[in-house]
Amino acid sequence: MIELTCIVCPKGCRLRVDENDGYKVTGNACPRGAAYGREEALDPKRVVTSTVRILFERDAESVDSVRPDLPAPLPLVSYFDPDLPHIEARLPVKTSVPIPKAKIADVMNAVHAVTVRGPYDIGDVIIKNVAETGADLIATRDLRVPDA
């Protein structure tokens, strides 16, 4: 018997899923809860989000105001600031689709092993088929490389 908390709605029903009885779900107040319980017991999946290390230095040009109608380079971009040597900027990433829960540690190992240089746009692939999950690790933010 697998015990789960349903997350379909705030009510949080205590679900019991019987793996010896065709993954029958009890304790659910609605059909959506039964579907959630079955899937969560059979093949639980999660989107993994984390950050990867950025490997470059830049001269942090200061921009005083951002005009969205002008080609302003900095907003919503990860960057490395050499004036703050202890700060290592990170590029946020996520798996492109939910991956099996059992593979989360493998994905995190791959995330920890990689350093990136960019440039990247949101959605660009950082690691293809990360940890053999079938999902790609993708950037969730732009990463611009300053002109040398």
Binding site: D64, S65, P68, L76, I122, R141, D142
Partner: peptide, 19 residues
Amino acid sequence: PEYAARAFDELRDTSVVVK
């Protein structure tokens, strides 16, 4: 960060100034 980028994108091609 993706949500923030969408929200900021809505200001593209506007006369809004962000200081």
